[in-house]
Design a protein around this nucleic acid. Sequence first.
DNA 1: TCCTCCTACGTCAACGTTGACGTAACCGAC
DNA 2: GTCGGTTACGTCAACGTTGACGTAGGAGGA
Lengths: 333, 333
Amino acid sequence: MRDVAALAKVSTKTVSRVINGLPGAGPEVVDRVRAAARTLGYRPNLTASSLRRSDRRSATIGVLFEDLSNPFDAALLRAVEDRARHNGVLVLAGSSEDDRALQGELLVSLSARRVDGVVVMAAGGHQDALQQERERGTPMVLVDRPPTFGGTDCVTTTNRDSSREAVLQLASLGHRDIAFLGDRRTLWTSQERYTGYLEGLAQAGLTLREELVRTDLHGADLAETAARALLDLDRPPTALFTAQNLVTVGAMRVLRARGLQHRVALIGFDDFPLADMLEPGITVVRQDVPGLGRKAADLIFARIDGDTSPPVHAVVPAALVRRGSGEIQPSGD
Amino acid sequence: MRDVAALAKVSTKTVSRVINGLPGAGPEVVDRVRAAARTLGYRPNLTASSLRRSDRRSATIGVLFEDLSNPFDAALLRAVEDRARHNGVLVLAGSSEDDRALQGELLVSLSARRVDGVVVMAAGGHQDALQQERERGTPMVLVDRPPTFGGTDCVTTTNRDSSREAVLQLASLGHRDIAFLGDRRTLWTSQERYTGYLEGLAQAGLTLREELVRTDLHGADLAETAARALLDLDRPPTALFTAQNLVTVGAMRVLRARGLQHRVALIGFDDFPLADMLEPGITVVRQDVPGLGRKAADLIFARIDGDTSPPVHAVVPAALVRRGSGEIQPSGD
DNA sequence: TCCTCCTACGTCAACGTTGACGTAACCGAC
DNA sequence: GTCGGTTACGTCAACGTTGACGTAGGAGGA
């Protein structure tokens, strides 16, 4: 910057004015400065700028999801990033692997870089680190899972309602033995979907068979094992409700391996690519992932811009997408 | 920091020493400073630190891919991020949408934040912006596509060799009419895969039928249209080589819609989730995506650490994964 | 005893930028 | 001609941190 000022024969302050498009610089000087900046390949230093500026903005937000390689997380990130770009903001992204310690460390790293706000998919268990960061004044929005502390915005899906709807759909076809296969119980989404499952059973007048409930299935492998065990029961389920996308894939694998994909009904929570190309197509509860991301981004940018209205819990509706696997009727035997 | 110093009754310089674990601070003072920092919830300001430090490191790298919601890009990002985390480095991520102007803007944004280096999936066409940034001294690694300028590391897949192998596999089953469906011709990967296709045909002693080559299929929709047109030919292809994952999906859709999925052979470049669950399973050339990401990260961190050895073009081998669709023999008619 | 060396601090300036404020030149109005 | 106002600059200090260097006090050796 000093070099630019020297070359244009003005003060650094004037260079600053020209770069930021502030008034107080004559047209001829503006041209000289622009030319000098171009000649020298000058790039303003945003970190120095935000250090000195009064608003202290870094034009950067942090995004902490569970696993950026998961399609759900990736789509969410993309939606947030698009909104951020529109605001001239860049995104620092990290995977917390659902590990509280790791999430805490990443949060400190983001904080040290003075991000303007963070969008977080909270790791299961205590949210002390999140709460602490929040109380330090960092704008924060939780996605997919709500905070266990107050004063913080969040965006979630209609986990419970959509799960209930899925179970009712199965019940309406005559299924009486509907299994539940869920992810880690510490996850709020798992709990909600399970609650929806229970509500669906109750509303359909069905009684819960405890042995048809399998939880803590983190990953497709555990889901496969659980699905096999369920089908080996004396009175196996005639329908499966799989409450997470990897669980759905695991269950699907087992059904196909046993040639049951046309006999046992299946509804999964969370859509996935090619679900429509399978035989039968997989009926799923589809979350509006870009919608979730956009809403989260809108909230965080509003807070960053000083919105002090009461915290919001936005709920984005999910929809049942019928493709075949959820429309299978119970078989006679 | 001043507050911490005041509370611990030391100078800010001593606080700096304690925070950075430098020698020159007595044990008692260290404890006092640590306690004060905890009490006040002090967080060091990394941007101010990197402004003043001699090495000028921001402990942040930039990652510019085409579309972070694409599974390929997402997996790549995740691999880079893992390596970065190991080095205490955070990742600024952006989607360039294969748009040179957008990529240039993002590059300037990253540069303004003084990232230590960038990992870029170059947008098609001229790479002026990339070259310019590189010449400014920014460490840079290109992934998936090589630079059109010198002095820069890159990491790619065995596009040509693996494509040739795929075509030879089809030819060895007796296919003589093998179609090529490719992404935008401006993309280096598309060109390489096409070259591999040509080499495969030549090596198998087959002559190229121009009308079996369809390119510039960006997205599944265009691929569907092209696939339909191919199958409508008087002498339609008996095998398809689809040179990108979305193209593969589009072609698959058409084959299924026409009930040809067991009659027309298909090999796709790039694996995708559930390719094994389809009927038939889809034979693909699988890239080692985490391997690509790890290699790219290793290169960028080596350069950041001052490695000045000659530029490297690392090639990560891809493998043909046989699942059924690529093993279909030409039908009699 | 005196000098040297080391340890444990402190002081100062600077990184690149901008807010606050100063000033010189010029314009228009009375 | 004088005064108030405006425009187009410049000067200075400060953002939070750390490199360079200074200094006081104690340990150790001749």
